[in-house]
Amino acid sequence: MFVRIVKMSFHLEHIATFESIFEEKKQFIRASKGCNLLELYQDKNNPEIFFTYSYWETPQDLENYRNSELFTTVWAKTKALFNDKPEAWSVDKKVSLQ
């Protein structure tokens, strides 16, 4: 399993629209084959910055999602709201304490 982290920055006036898109689609994204967890974070100091964390069984599962109609539709709506280029990382989780 690995974690996909995506950093996105939005114009202030588009934050509510992004949150609405995420709320509408989050269950479908989470239900994608191989997705074990989906989380959304907002930066405490800069409300324009958001992060998604998603846990995937395999890189192929993530690629299948990224090639899906769901991703294409969500990403097209979301990227129109950006005020900066998004960044993404695929990382292996080494330690998790709860």
Rank of each mutant, 00 (worst) to 15 (best):
Q60S: 13
E57C: 07
N36Q: 14
A76C: 03
L62Q: 12
A31I: 07
Q27P: 00
L37H: 14
F71P: 02
K25N: 15
F51R: 07
A76N: 12
D61C: 14
L81G: 02
Y53N: 14
K25V: 11
E23N: 13
P47D: 15
L62W: 06
F50G: 01
Q60K: 11
T72D: 08
F51Q: 06
G34P: 00
P59Y: 10
P47Q: 12
Y41F: 12
F28G: 07
K25T: 10
E69W: 04
F22Q: 08
T58G: 01
E24R: 14
D43K: 06
K26A: 05
T73M: 07
L62C: 03
G34I: 03
C35I: 05
T52G: 03
K26T: 12
F28V: 08
Q27M: 09
L70S: 01
P47H: 10
T72S: 11
Y53A: 13
Q27C: 09
L81D: 00
S68C: 04
C35A: 10
W56M: 03
Q42M: 09
L38D: 06
K77D: 09
I49E: 11
L81V: 04
S68K: 04
P59Q: 14
Y41S: 09
I21M: 07
F51T: 05
E23P: 00
A76W: 01
S68G: 04
N64P: 00
P47I: 15
Y53Q: 10
I29N: 01
L81R: 01
K77S: 10
Q42H: 04
T52I: 13
E23K: 13
F51A: 04
F50Y: 15
L81P: 07
L70R: 06
K26M: 06
K25L: 05
N67G: 15
P47M: 13
L62I: 02
K77P: 03
F22H: 15
Y65N: 01
Y53P: 04
S68N: 03
W75F: 09
Q60R: 15
